[in-house]
């Protein structure tokens, strides 16, 4: 209830800022995923993907 009210009270400018923060967070998370993948390949080599199941 309180959450909905605070949503209703957001001005267009506040909504724009929140959207930009959310996008930046999503971008950062995406970069982290990519980073971990690339570092894994760099440290362990491409053979890490060819393991017996």
């Amino acid at each position: 209830m309180a959450d909905r009210k605070s949503h209703q009270s957001l001005t267009p400018e506040e909504q724009k800022r929140r959207r930009s923060r959310s996008l930046a967070l999503a971008f950062t998370l995406g970069v982290l995923v990519l980073l971990f993948y690339v570092v894994t390949i760099a440290k362990l080599g491409p053979g890490v993907l060819q393991r017996p199941m």
Partner: peptide, 15 residues
């Protein structure tokens, strides 16, 4: 109280 906290905690910051 909840409303004032929500308002106080609402970030005004841009990226």
């Amino acid at each position: 109280q909840v409303e004032s906290l929500a308002t106080a905690g609402l970030s005004q910051g841009d990226v």
